[in-house]
Design a protein around this nucleic acid. Structure first.
Lengths: 198, 198
DNA sequence: CCACCGAGAGTGAACGTTCATTCTCACGTT
DNA sequence: AACGTGAGAATGAACGTTCACTCTCGGTGG
């Protein structure tokens, strides 16, 4: 129950409470009552800041999307896309494995299958990421750092699948740690993307 | 609404109806009423075959687990584990991408975070698959078909992540087809697993 | 200095709906 | 008559949401 801390705006407090509840019970399992209790306020007060439960979910997903986009913005400026991808990927994995970020990835994927608004946000994020990776790979191919035989768009898709897959694995087995996978992941990316002769 | 077909037992009819509803609305979004309507029967009749909604979910997940186990049983008898993994992986992807199998993978992952019974089944399946892949890789290493520098257990984990990730991608973008990914996936596995000198 | 005011944040009981589940009973077969 | 089967209305809990209201202050006229 996060009490009324002066510095934190009410809207943020609600979002944080909602994330905690969704993490515990999922989007549909968490009740507005539980979110209200977690935020330390009554339903009436909460509905002053968000018109509906769906609006809260949408706000959370949107914030998550922006955070993700931040990761990939660095890709455009990197000299070596393979090196940058590995570093960014490992950084993302570390962050997501540490806190409750895992739940969001899994829950959002499931929800995007039926919630129109969320599907739109997810689609936009996916396009954005895939384009960023694909462009970086193409540039890498021009400089001889990436195997020219690869189809950049499809390789990008697979790389995104690996990211999503790691979150799914973590969700299924919370004891999974990032340390054990770091090296193997780096090896995988290097061998997959580099020119075969090396 | 699947009517009463003589050949199909009632229990199976219920499970098929439930899968259709869950595919449409998710485990929590689909109501028992909807499942009854889809199966063409009343609640009273349905509850004669399953004691609860959770029991239906558990039965579906369990059946799915057995289907998965079938895929990996072939791995033990293969001469070349890399070749076998690629073939099995592509076969799995084709099947899952074709029908509504995608939803199950995603929904089950999300549900396993909070449903004790489902978590147990998921954990069992994951262990089973990882061991099968890991053993196959170890045998491949002994025969010089797999890079000896790889840690078999971690490589297996990453391979499973790729599979889960592909389902997540498909869930997020239903227009994604298996054809576009087949070759890239095969390339990825080969380069990841084979000894570097080739 | 103080009584009063208005505005906006917050309250929590109540509402209508939906859900999973149970109950009762009619029907067809033996 | 006795029994297994299924239909469908009934039940009670839980949900998201609303609404009439209270509380808290900073500002204002006297």
């Amino acid at each position: 129950m996060s009490a009324s801390v002066p510095g934190v705006p009410t809207r943020t407090r609600i979002l944080e409470a909602a994330i905690a509840c969704f993490d515990r019970s999922g989007f549909h399992g968490a009740s507005m009552g539980a979110i209200c209790a977690e935020a330390g306020m009554s339903p009436g007060a909460l509905y002053r800041y968000f018109p509906s439960k769906d609006a809260i979910i949408a706000a959370i997903v949107e914030a998550d999307r922006e955070r993700h986009a931040g990761f990939f913005s660095r890709l455009a400026e990197a000299d070596d896309p393979v090196e940058a991808l590995a570093t960014i990927g490992i950084e993302m994995m570390d962050e997501m494995f540490a806190e409750g970020g895992t739940m969001l990835a899994v829950e959002v994927t499931a929800e995007s299958r039926r919630n129109e608004a969320i599907r739109a946000v997810v689609r936009a994020r996916a396009d954005q990421c895939r384009t960023a990776i694909s462009d970086a790979l193409t540039r890498g191919q021009e400089r001889g750092l990436v195997d020219p035989a690869l189809v950049a768009g499809e390789a990008a898709q697979i790389i995104m699948a690996i990211a999503d897959g790691l979150f799914a694995q973590k969700a299924q087995d919370p004891t999974l740690t990032a340390d054990r996978l770091r090296d193997t992941l780096r090896t995988l990316l290097g061998r997959f993307l580099r020119p075969v002769g090396r």
